[in-house]
């Protein structure tokens, strides 16, 4: 039995400690916004936040997340209006959309760590997230836009 706090809600899950957090989130908690792409931390589609830091859920044993605050894409904002989500909508970023939960969670982590990221910062922080539709140029633009929106929001 593992007790997890996902998006502010604490719940017990009858799963082994070494089950990847991803599959507890997806197949047991049934929060499917966090995606499975590779199972090896190669693609970043499974990115969630653990106590505010980005984490690839597919290679994290659920036991390592017990007692910590897990945030998934569903918990990022109640209504899809986080500055990063707004920037994504403004720039019409998504295509197939499968990688975008992970892209957004990574972008949120970047802007949190570096409120005014440069292109080099974006390369360094987001090259762990693969997009086969090639939305990279728009993601780049949207991260810059999100940084501006985030500043306006906190002002």
């Amino acid at each position: 039995m593992v007790s997890l706090t996902i998006n502010g809600k604490t719940q017990d899950f009858d799963v082994p400690d070494d089950m990847p957090l991803l599959w507890v989130i997806r197949d047991v908690a049934h929060l499917t916004g966090t995606k499975f792409g590779c199972g090896l931390a190669q693609c970043g589609a499974c990115t969630v936040h653990l106590d505010g830091a980005p984490l690839r859920a597919c290679v994290t044993p659920v036991g390592a997340a017990a007692g910590k605050a897990i945030t998934t894409i569903e918990g990022l904002s109640p209504d899809g209006t986080h500055p990063v989500q707004r920037a994504w909508a403004e720039l019409d970023v998504v295509q197939c959309g499968y990688c975008q939960s992970g892209q957004i969670m990574s972008a949120v982590a970047l802007i949190k760590a570096k409120p005014e990221p440069t292109d080099a910062d974006i390369d360094a922080a987001l090259s762990g997230n693969i997009c086969r539709c090639g939305t990279y140029p728009r993601i780049r633009a949207a991260v810059h836009r999100a940084a501006t929106l985030a500043k306006e929001t906190t002002r």
């Binding site: 916004g33 989500q85 998504v94």
Partner: peptide, 8 residues
């Protein structure tokens, strides 16, 4: 399809 794809 953006709203549903940016919110999971």
């Amino acid at each position: 399809d953006t709203p549903e794809k940016i919110t999971g």
